Computed example of a mutant assay.
Amino acid sequence: MHRSWRRVFLAAALLVTSIVRASADDGAIIDRWYSALLVADRTELSDLLSDDVRMKLDDIGVVQSKEDFIASIDEWQGAVAGATIRHRIEKSENGETTVLACYDFPNNDTLMRETFTVAGGRITASTQTAVAQDCSAY
């Protein structure tokens, strides 16, 4: 009986370790995302997105494919010039990571809640919703 408890404990410990490792990997992908987004790095952003990604922009009612998103980078590059993006993970579980992100543009700032679904080292879904017109709650 003592041995079977050890096996159960060991199996549970390995499961928790793999979940923690997956969350850490997802966090690294999210960090890469914001770094690439800040400099409008098309190659890195494209590498981070799965081919069938769906990016939902709740506030304007738009859903973008990978191609739509990459095509919008020229416009984004002008908007993000001189900006900073601060982000922190609020929670991460079961391949879904929720982030609070402050987009601090030269003339204004916006606080967003963004949820990413990550599988196989790539973002498969993203939902972005405005939280506030400034980042005072960040």
Rank of each mutant, 00 (worst) to 15 (best):
A83L: 00
A83P: 00
A83S: 14
T84D: 10
T84N: 13
T84I: 05
T84C: 04
T84E: 11
T84P: 05
T84R: 15
I85Y: 06
I85T: 05
I85D: 05
R86S: 15
R86N: 15
H87Q: 11
R88K: 13
I89R: 13
I89F: 10
I89H: 12
I89Q: 13
E90G: 09
E90A: 10
E90C: 07
E90T: 10
E90V: 13
K91N: 08
K91L: 10
S92F: 01
E93V: 09
E93I: 07
E93L: 09
N94C: 13
N94F: 10
N94T: 15
G95L: 03
G95A: 04
G95R: 10
G95V: 02
E96H: 15
T97H: 05
T97D: 02
T97E: 02
T98W: 08
T98Q: 12
V99R: 09
V99A: 06
V99P: 08
L100I: 09
L100M: 14
L100Y: 04
L100E: 10
A101C: 06
A101S: 15
A101L: 04
C102S: 02
C102L: 03
C102M: 01
C102E: 01
Y103K: 01
Y103T: 00
D104I: 01
D104Q: 12
F105M: 01
P106W: 00
P106D: 00
P106Q: 00
N107C: 02
N107L: 10
N108V: 05
N108K: 15
D109F: 00
D109E: 13
D109I: 00
T110E: 13
T110V: 09
L111A: 01
L111D: 00
L111S: 01
M112L: 12
M112C: 06
R113G: 06
E114L: 07
E114C: 05
T115N: 08
T115I: 06
T115W: 06
T115E: 07
F116H: 08
F116M: 03
F116R: 04
F116W: 02
F116Y: 14
T117I: 09
T117R: 15
T117M: 11
V118C: 06
V118F: 03
A119D: 14
G120I: 07
G120C: 11
G120T: 07
G120D: 15
G121D: 07
G121Y: 02
G121N: 04
G121M: 03
G121H: 03
R122F: 05
R122P: 06
I123M: 07
I123F: 03
I123A: 05
T124A: 10
A125H: 14
A125V: 03
A125M: 07
A125Q: 13
S126R: 08
S126Q: 10
T127E: 12
T127A: 11
Q128I: 08
T129F: 07
A130P: 03
A130S: 08
A130Q: 09
V131Y: 03
V131Q: 09
V131I: 12
A132V: 02
A132N: 13
Q133R: 15
Q133F: 12
Q133E: 08
Q133N: 12
Q133C: 06
Q133P: 06
D134F: 04
D134G: 10
D134N: 15
C135D: 03
C135V: 01
C135S: 03
C135E: 02
S136W: 06
S136K: 11
S136E: 14
A137F: 07
